[in-house]
């Protein structure tokens, strides 16, 4: 998985019917030092993540391995909201800080 920050959402009323009632989030990919990378992803939300949350997302066929995205044209899914992470014991990110 990769770490990303939710920076927006996508509303598309006209879309493939298999994508109905799936929430689409715009993610800014973050480095392990929590610095924004020059890369974004549109991903389906499966954990009620919102703008401003730091999340984990899975890509490829793994993204279809949820009840929400099973058999749907989706290759990126937000599957966790990050509380914190450390690199060799040194805190890098804390959601509450």
């Amino acid at each position: 998985m990769l770490i990303a920050k939710v920076v927006g959402s996508v509303v598309a009323t006209q879309k493939d019917e298999k994508l109905e009632n799936l929430k689409l989030l715009v993610l800014q990919v973050q480095s392990h030092e929590n610095k924004p990378k020059d890369q974004y992803v549109v991903a389906v939300d499966s954990v009620q993540a919102g703008v401003g949350d730091t999340v984990l997302y899975a890509t490829g066929s793994s993204a279809r391995q949820t009840t929400l995205t099973d058999g749907r044209p989706c290759d990126a899914v937000v599957m966790a909201v990050v509380d914190s992470w450390d690199i060799d014991g040194a805190n890098v990110y804390e959601a509450w800080a």
């Binding site: 392990h32 599957m79 992470w85 690199i87």
Partner: peptide, 21 residues
């Protein structure tokens, strides 16, 4: 392995799974 990541809110079915960088 360079670090550990905590994510209590996660997709169901991932209970007991740890995340590591």
């Amino acid at each position: 392995v360079i670090g550990r990541l905590v994510a209590t809110v996660r997709y169901e079915g991932l209970d007991g799974v740890a995340f590591q960088l």
